[in-house]
Design a protein around this nucleic acid. Structure first.
Length: 507
RNA sequence: GGGCCCAUAGCUCAGCCGGUAGAGCAGCGGCCUUUUAAGCCGUUGGUCGCGAGUUCGAAUCUCGCUGGGCUCACCA
């Protein structure tokens, strides 16, 4: 940063040296806290001043100085730890000379240790009457201003540690993030799911349609991908007899950044044998409702300027019905790529984009092409309508290479995506467990790859082999955890819910 | 990657119709032993993101670069 030449830093280094001269130690680590601030507050309960005087409670607290109100011969020092904030009162005639000197050398931002008994000020505020007061760690760099905090988004992301110190809203977002993950974990644990860990370095690309990050293992002289999804490994585990598994997984996709996309992001992916995508819809509603109630105490939330209610039963809308309702599709349009193409253009999709999508499909039937093109119209025209939670169901098989075909129509699959606030939150389907069909689907992906689809999956021979040993009828789902946190915290930018989002290097 | 916008003191911002910088907070000095955005008096602090150009003169106008925000595209 601006370096030690800065005047403010120079002053603080000077104070640090003077404290060291008093204490004989520059970074002491022998202060022992009696507990957190919250414990001290709990110990005092609602006892009034006289009660605290009658039965003194001694505490030793440590934390960061957030404010100092000084009177020259006494001062209030507001100390914050992980659990909360409590002020200490240090007065000259209640402490020895070196202690009062330490107080005078304290800056906002310093880490201090305070020992003393609890009392109440004339306004009734619980306060530690300091007997011992020490500076444990000098903050050599000043903190941002106390009531505007740190506003600059770039600074907040680059120096998250400072953001967390000064912005309570930011601390709250990440506490909520932790609660969300704890809730999901407990929710699945309670239902007999087993948490597992699968490889993040893959030699075969699969489980999603996305461009990967590449890396290299030196000793094996082997190129590897950072995983884009754990799906194929999790289903291998179901083959292995772990009927219900889940992984809270970090995935890596080599795509553009946006306020909804970070190259590494967190998903919760879970699989349940002897279930279908219909079962997962019920489970998903239950999860979202319980999570919202647990984390926020209500099923309503604000997301990207929209009022969302997770309380009512989620709407269920098939792709084809959506296209009929919002894009004017008629029966013939679902079978004739030319007609579907015309509908797509009528929806306002750029011709070049539609042609590109058509072209990179590779060798497909007219029905498949018509449906795949329809997805463009869906994304362009239907998505903006999906504000309240909606399960979009029955996707085209041609774009769903791992999903089970519908018994009633093999060109469609038993799949849903969950939309909330016009954004996709999750993706689930009954798993394709027919190894011969899976082979054919991988062939289709290879065909698409050959036709120029950079995001197509690779042919995973071992996965097909696993299927030949028998994958029970299974349903699986993935949810974007970062987006769930955005929804429940009202953050519009994914970077606000990721502690250290990817940024370009400084300078 | 495309479009629009932003970058001034440690932090939050003003100045932008060109005349080489201002406030609040923080800091420093003084007064103040129950404050809580404490108060009162005084005061330090800036290669105005970087680099060119126009001009007698640029924080201000122009171009380029860097970083960021919003938005579009792909995904979750």
């Amino acid at each position: 940063m601006e370096g030690v030449e800065n005047e403010l830093v120079r002053q603080r280094l000077e104070k640090q040296a003077r404290i060291e001269a008093i204490d004989g130690v520059r970074y002491p680590n022998d202060f022992r806290m009696s507990g957190f601030v919250a414990d001290a507050i709990a110990a005092a309960g609602d006892k009034d001043g006289p009660a605290l005087e009658a039965e003194p409670i001694e505490v030793a607290l440590a934390g960061r100085v957030m404010a100092i109100n000084s009177f020259g011969k006494a001062a209030f020092v507001r100390v914050r730890d992980q659990s909360g904030t409590l002020q200490a009162y240090v007065k000259k005639d209640a402490v020895d000379e070196p202690t009062f000197e330490r107080l005078k050398l304290t800056d906002i931002g310093d880490i201090v240790g305070v020992r003393g008994v609890l009392f109440r000020t004339r306004t009734g505020e619980l306060t530690v009457q300091a007997r011992e007061y020490r500076v444990l760690t000098k903050a050599q760099h000043p903190l941002p201003e106390k009531w505007h905090g740190l506003k600059d988004m770039e600074q907040r992301h680059r120096m998250r540690y400072v953001d967390l110190i000064v912005n309570e809203e930011s601390r709250e977002v990440f506490r909520t993030r932790t609660k969300v993950i704890q809730y999901i974990r407990k929710f699945l644990d309670d239902r007999g799911y087993m948490e597992v860990e699968t490889p993040m370095m893959h030699s075969v690309l699969g489980g999603a349609n996305a461009r990967p990050f590449c890396t290299h293992h030196n000793a094996l002289d082997m190129d590897l991908y950072l995983r884009i999804a754990p799906e194929l490994y999790l289903k291998r585990l179901v083959v292995g007899g772990f009927d219900r598994v889940y992984e809270i997984n970090r995935n890596f996709r080599n795509e553009g950044l946006s306020n909804r996309h970070n190259p590494e992001f967190t998903m919760i992916e879970f699989y349940q044998a002897y279930a279908t995508y219909l079962d997962l819809m019920d489970l998903t509603e239950e999860l979202f409702r319980g999570m919202a109630m647990s984390v926020r105490g209500t099923t309503t939330c604000q997301f990207r300027g929209q009022a969302i209610d997770l309380g009512p039963t989620f709407r269920r809308l098939s792709i084809c019905d959506a296209l009929r309702e919002y894009c004017g599709y008629e029966e013939a349009d679902f079978h004739d790529p030319g007609k579907s193409f015309a509908r797509v253009l009528a929806c306002g999709v750029a011709k070049a984009e539609a042609e590109h999508v058509w072209q990179k499909l590779g060798e497909v039937t007219p029905r498949d092409a018509a449906l795949a093109l329809g997805m463009l119209a869906f994304e362009h025209t239907v998505e903006p309508h999906l504000v309240q939670p909606t399960f979009v169901t029955d996707f085209p098989a041609v774009i769903s290479p791992l999903s089970r075909r519908k018994d009633s129509d093999p060109t469609l699959v038993d799949r849903f995506e969950l939309y909330i606030g016009t954004n996709e939150f999750g993706n689930a389907f009954s798993e394709l467990n027919d190894p011969q069909d899976q082979e054919a689907r991988f062939q289709g992906q290879m065909s698409a790859k050959a036709a120029g689809d950079a995001e197509a999956m690779e042919y995973d021979e071992d996965y097909v082999r696993a299927l030949t040993f028998g994958l029970p009828p299974t349903a699986g789902e993935g949810l974007g955890v970062d987006r769930v946190v955005m929804l429940l915290t009202g953050c519009d930018n994914i970077r606000d819910v990721i502690l250290f989002p990817l940024l370009r290097p400084e300078q």
